[in-house]
Design a protein around this nucleic acid. Sequence first.
DNA 1: GGATGCGGAATTGTATACAGATCATCACGG
DNA 2: CCGTGATGATCTGTATACAATTCCGCATCC
Lengths: 220, 220
Amino acid sequence: MSTSVDLVYEQVRQMAANFEFKPAERINESELSKQLGASRTPLREAMNRLTAEGLLMFEPGRGFFCQPLTPELVVHLYEVREALETSAIRAAVERAGDDDIAAIRQFLSDTAERYADGTPTKEIVRLDEEFHLMIAQLSGNPELVNMIKLTYERIRYVRWIAMRERIDITHSAHLHIFEALENRDAQAAEDRMRTHIKTHNAEATEIVGKAYSNLYVPQH
Amino acid sequence: MSTSVDLVYEQVRQMAANFEFKPAERINESELSKQLGASRTPLREAMNRLTAEGLLMFEPGRGFFCQPLTPELVVHLYEVREALETSAIRAAVERAGDDDIAAIRQFLSDTAERYADGTPTKEIVRLDEEFHLMIAQLSGNPELVNMIKLTYERIRYVRWIAMRERIDITHSAHLHIFEALENRDAQAAEDRMRTHIKTHNAEATEIVGKAYSNLYVPQH
DNA sequence: GGATGCGGAATTGTATACAGATCATCACGG
DNA sequence: CCGTGATGATCTGTATACAATTCCGCATCC
């Protein structure tokens, strides 16, 4: 049972990942709890979890805040992605069964047509994450997968923005990574994954840098 | 202000990292809150944080449990360490200042004599963690450092046990890793770090495997 | 003997109350 | 005009209460 706390947790997590709180905004507990139809107790429990996951910040005596995305943070989180995902794909090359690999090929061909202009950006990012997580899961290491997931949630917002311009090349980059996995070429797989993430890191950082100078600074 | 919740958090975190709860044990909230001199509300907030950090488990309607260390989990967490720390040392080689590196050399020579038989195992593990974290910090990436810290806390208990037998070689292994960093040889530094962690992974897993068959299974 | 069901006790989930801290406003003084 | 300090309003931190659920022991039945 206990839908209430989990429900609140999911809702606030979504709100945080989707940046429905203004960056560095102090979150009013009473107000938000009313809005979500629960009391402050389960809300605070949920926000404590999210703080530990890095989606919110907490200052004793002051409350919970939206964790703002600075250019530095984006660089750091993409570096974490790089560390985790290159390691994951290397393990995947060694451990994945042929059927698992076939499932990814299937996924790629099933979704190929959706990597097109008409598709909403959120959907593209979802597909992108799903591809990366499928590979991560083939590492057979749930802890690795979990950390990658958490990292995604913290940069999802900037990825929505960054993805707009580069929809077309995403799918071919994925195919390129996948083929190294399919050929069981660990070094190539790792290198391609690293390059892929580094590219996105540069783009995302640039975008946040622009947004930061346009949006965040004038607010103070 | 607000020492109470943070105090409770620190205490429970220590208890969890030190495995003062029996593996997979259900944690009685009222009892523990009395023991810690606080009420259930701040205790539950602390335990929610620790659940997100992987030190505890939570089942809705049943409560919080100690996260048991299985051989599989140990393998997975050491793999995570490997991913994060090899990445960190590579960044450290590129970014560390000469003075930072000198500080580590100083630390190693200061603590050399303590890597000896008489020193308590807990102290050795602390020194070991400190060395690794000093290197991680030179990556300049606080997110990476934080994830490494969290991973340490989850395997600290098994490291206490594993460290007993290998005190002597730990220091020379650290020196070996450090020298690659000092020489700015990224590849060697990464390789040596990887080997170091893999070695400990194998040992720790074996130890947990033994403990698991001796200790955990008969409990059910 | 093992599975099943049924209380009663224990435990968790959540709301609420209240004390204490923080914040915002405004008046005052430099 | 800007800094400073007092004061009331607001918000957070924590204890407590109570409802809902789970757990446990025992009797019953197959």
